[in-house]
Amino acid sequence: MNLRVRNRQNFLFGAFLLFLGVAGIVFARDLTMGNAFRMGPGYLPNVLSGCIALFGLGFLASAFWTDGEEWGRTAWSGLLFVVGAVVVFGLIVKWAGLALTIVVSVLLSSFAATDRRWREIVPFAIGLAIACVLIFGTIFNLHLPIWPKW
């Protein structure tokens, strides 16, 4: 028997589900189960986690006897800068204010694009910041932090 991952998609999805299912059961261990007719708070979490883990096993197994589609590129730098820009937004928005945060996030995320042009993106970031301050701060008056607090 030839044990080789032929379906990378199913293998990874299966691994994810198995992990999620097991974690779901582990973190629901303090909740009362009850039974199907008198469900406790832990009933559904355990049943669902169990099903998810089983699905995970199924997909894992199927990865060895079905063929997956071509995987293609993985946009690691895209993932890093796009997600990074969102995280940085969250980290600084409370004290840096909306205006500055938007400029920083736009610049940071544009590292993900190979065809970026600084001369274009910097004024664009500033323009976007102004637009957002106008929309969210003035029109909707959402009381967001707009300017940096030093």
Binding site: V82, A85, F89, I102, S105, S109, F124, A125, L128
Partner: peptide
């Protein structure tokens, strides 16, 4: 980047 900012 604009979409991303609107998301955030």
């Amino acid at each position: 980047p604009a979409i991303l900012v609107f998301c955030a």
